[in-house]
Write a protein that binds this DNA or RNA. Sequence first.
DNA 1: CTTTTCTCCTGTATGC
DNA 2: TGCATACAGGAGAAAA
Length: 319
Amino acid sequence: MPELPEVETVRRGLAEHVVGRTVTRAAFFGARVTRRHPPGPEDLAAQLAGARVAAAERRGKYLWLVMEPGRGDQPDRAPAAFALIVHLGMSGQLLVEPPDAPVEAHLRAAFDLAGDAPGPGPGGGSGGGPGWVGTQLRFVDQRTFGGMALADLVPAPGRPGGVPQTITHIAPDPLESAYDQRAVVAAMKRRQSAVKRALLDQSLVSGIGNIYADEALWAAKVHGERPCAALSRPALARVLTAAREVMERALEAGGTSFDALYVNVNGASGYFDRSLHAYGQVGRPCARCGAPIRREAFMNRSSYSCPRCQPRPRLAGRV
DNA sequence: CTTTTCTCCTGTATGC
DNA sequence: TGCATACAGGAGAAAA
């Protein structure tokens, strides 16, 4: 499940293999992948055709490519850059492949790319590389919770290139300069909800999903059902710091696993198997105290925690 | 305004 | 073996 570290790994792959190239043709398959782009897939394809990928950006779990339109009718006046937003949902992958690679079962979009990418990627020079005639960027998404859309870029603090207008409700994530942990702690203090719900609220702090929420709460020794307001500011800060640290470590573990041909979210995190202390570890001993990790229902899914290190709040829920 | 619930989707695992 | 069911879960719309 792509959360911040996995999405950042994909962004880095895009920066290396796609930025600098021009989209010569775009195609979309199925209606759901463009459901967040109201004008529809034909409009999306038309606007991308001829545009150059100027940058690959990320905030939380959202990716976007900064696109510079091709100069059509007005060669003396450069049209404004815009964003191609990509959300991977739960099962989305971005793949960089030769155009004649076999079509994946859940291929949702394909972009033909022209030009060389800068840096030591494929096609980056005469030596090395597979020597493709062309390159395709493909979006494959089994469950199609992800999608693509266009948006204008609007100014945002700490983001020189701006952020897409349609995702300005997404808060800065813990790894960007605009992130202000003291402000997040203050906002959490005012929340009338459990701390895990707050961690998952992307308008408060972005990038954290179910996995890293459980890991952060385990590291901070806090049960996710504890009300935000019942936690001290230092305790809230410890939870947020733990979230940042666990995601930084996951990024280190996952950041090296894609090769030159492949920008793959599923392969991005070897972190899952080796370093999880709570998520999915039901019955296994807590790494701190040895008590078996428990699983509890939470919002139609699951939460994992240590029953000894993370005791449930005494008043779990009010009526 | 704030907070919670529902819904979208499909492959995998489990139970009878 | 075959069929039904639970589960994974991000995010936005709808409801409370």
